[in-house]
Design a protein around this nucleic acid. Structure first.
Lengths: 141, 141
DNA sequence: ATACATAATTGTAATTATTACAAATTTATC
DNA sequence: GATAAATTTGTAATAATTACAATTATGTAT
């Protein structure tokens, strides 16, 4: 049983050939492809494939958190294998830092101001759960 | 001369009434509005307004870095006043941290894992310009 | 002020991504 | 193997965006 079939089964998704192929394509092409690209990319191996199926599969895989949709500024949706957790949250009250599951995918340049980007991280600031609770407790006295 | 007229002039954009109104709308409505929302939002004050004009103005303002377009996962573009710089870059070689002008706008939840988000920051990692240069110099010897 | 050139706006039509939906096919279950 | 459920398919509808030509407004020189 191949890797993708297994992944789908683990997520309680019946591993149809279409689903497996879409998933495989997204794993092998980590370039944030569009629906069109995915469709033409696997149409050769699955000649009966319908574009509607690609839409259906992508929607399902996103619901089940197997993939992530990211919106380009080009009027098309792009898709990517899930990479998470990828965020941190720092509380401005107590200073604690928490890992958060923000499955955000950076879509911008690979170079910025001449620096070569190899990784990134979204850092949030605010008031953490615990401090919020304490503040509520105070207000209710 | 109002604030928006001034801002446009500073950017060398002739301050037509349509441009001023779009800009004003985006300043007063920091909710990442869509073209549709902007259009209906100012149509009352500018009855002759065309939707094409809204598209034109938004494209121009984005080119001139006055606003930022952000793509929701809902098939529509959203627009926002520019807020930058909002990123940092940390070099994995020398450890230096640089401010970078990444005018990314976070579009996700305002709460995450029960924590209240009030600010955010995109942090990049990689190899900085200086270290890249040094590495090149070495390779060319 | 008037005539002219340039820039901006407008409205319509075309394009493109996405969704809705019903029919056909496949898969699972008894 | 028969039946029901799930999945895929193709077509048609919807909605956002773009292309483009015509109109309107603005600026400049005489």
């Amino acid at each position: 049983m191949d890797k993708y079939t297994e992944l789908l089964k683990n997520k309680n998704i019946s591993p149809s050939i279409q689903r497996v192929k879409v998933l495989q394509y997204l794993d092998k092409n980590r370039t944030h492809p569009t629906v069109e690209q995915i469709y033409t990319g696997i149409k050769g191996e699955l000649p009966t494939l319908s574009k509607t199926t690609v839409y259906n599969v992508l929607q399902l895989l996103e619901e089940k958190k197997v993939i992530k949709s990211i919106s380009g500024s080009d009027g098309r949706e792009h898709y990517d294998f899930c990479r998470l957790p990828h965020g941190h949250f720092k509380c401005v009250k107590c200073g604690n830092v928490y890992d958060v599951e923000e499955n955000f995918v950076y879509q911008g340049e690979q170079m910025i101001d001449g620096h070569k980007i190899t990784d990134y991280n979204l850092v949030f600031k605010g008031i953490c759960k615990n401090c919020l609770n304490k503040m509520d407790a105070k207000n209710e006295k």
